[in-house]
């Protein structure tokens, strides 16, 4: 309990610092918001344009599919707002040796590495993905229980998405240069933006059980539509635990390799 309180306290300070920083770079603030808006628009419109020419893709109608896209946007939104900066920071800190200071702080080091940058600008945009989620949810005819579950499932899916990406980021201990890894990380992220049934058998299995990016969105959304499909969701929870453990293992091994470039 005391530990949890400490982390909350520290996080409050992160938020205050990021807010202070954002307010001194106003142009930056606006541009970050624009990035998100462009991204949301292009994601939704791409799918919408395809549906201009087909009635269903797999089992899903336009509304269901766009609900899925919105679900992934809600995860992306949390991701952009809370973590996205961390991967790039991490690689910079590894290369320059600036990681030293974070290693010295008496707190779980992964916390400051991945969570000390918050984008307050993105917080303003919360209405966009959630507005879409509600709009397409209504159209897709979500049940009352599903509405209650929705926020929780977004958080669970977000947790898995972040765990996968942090584990991939651990590879930077070995590669040092980061563009390739970050590129790979983002590509995997974009794989999860399409429902798992569009992937052929082998790919679907691989990205469900080995690198489980496909269940991030597909599992919870399928469950929201039909409670009998609960197994993938259970897999999501299991994978979260597995990835927590893997991150811990790789973090420890990676740290032994850290050379802390000096000046």
């Amino acid at each position: 309990m005391r530990v949890l309180k400490k982390y909350l306290h520290v996080y409050q300070a992160y938020f205050a610092m990021n807010l202070a920083q954002a307010s001194s770079f106003r142009m930056h603030f606006v541009l970050v918001i624009l990035v998100d808006i462009f991204f949301y628009a292009s994601s939704l419109l791409s799918v919408s344009f395809i549906y201009d020419h087909v009635d269903t893709i797999g089992p899903w109608t336009r509304e269901e599919f766009l609900f899925f896209v919105s679900f992934m946007l809600a995860i992306d939104h949390l991701h952009m707002m809370l973590v996205a900066h961390g991967y790039w920071e991490f690689s910079r800190e590894l290369r320059t040796g600036d990681l030293d200071f974070k290693l010295l702080k008496p707190i779980g080091t992964l916390f400051p590495i991945f969570f000390d940058r918050v984008r307050p600008g993105s917080a303003l945009l919360i209405f966009v993905p959630w507005g879409c989620l509600i709009y397409f949810g209504v159209q897709a005819g979500l049940s009352p229980l599903s509405w209650v579950l929705l926020p929780f499932l977004v958080v669970v899916a977000f947790t898995l998405a972040v765990s996968i990406q942090i584990l991939i980021a651990m590879v930077m201990f070995w590669t040092i240069e980061s563009i390739g890894i970050n590129f790979l990380r983002m590509q995997l992220q974009s794989l999860s933006r399409w429902p798992d049934f569009v992937y052929l058998y082998f790919f679907r299995k691989f990205f469900t059980f080995f690198i489980p990016v496909l269940i991030v969105g597909s599992a919870p959304v399928k469950f929201l539509f039909d409670y009998s499909v609960w197994q993938p969701l259970a897999l999501v929870c299991a994978m979260i635990l597995l990835f927590f453990w893997l991150i811990r293992v790789f973090w420890r091994i990676g740290l032994r390799r850290y050379e802390s470039a000096s000046s």
Binding site: I50, G58, L200, F203
Partner: peptide, 15 residues
């Protein structure tokens, strides 16, 4: 290969 190929194959074949 992962996204585009799969996506279009499934759009065409599933329907």
């Amino acid at each position: 290969f992962l996204i585009k190929y799969n996506l279009w194959v499934s759009i065409y074949s599933l329907e």
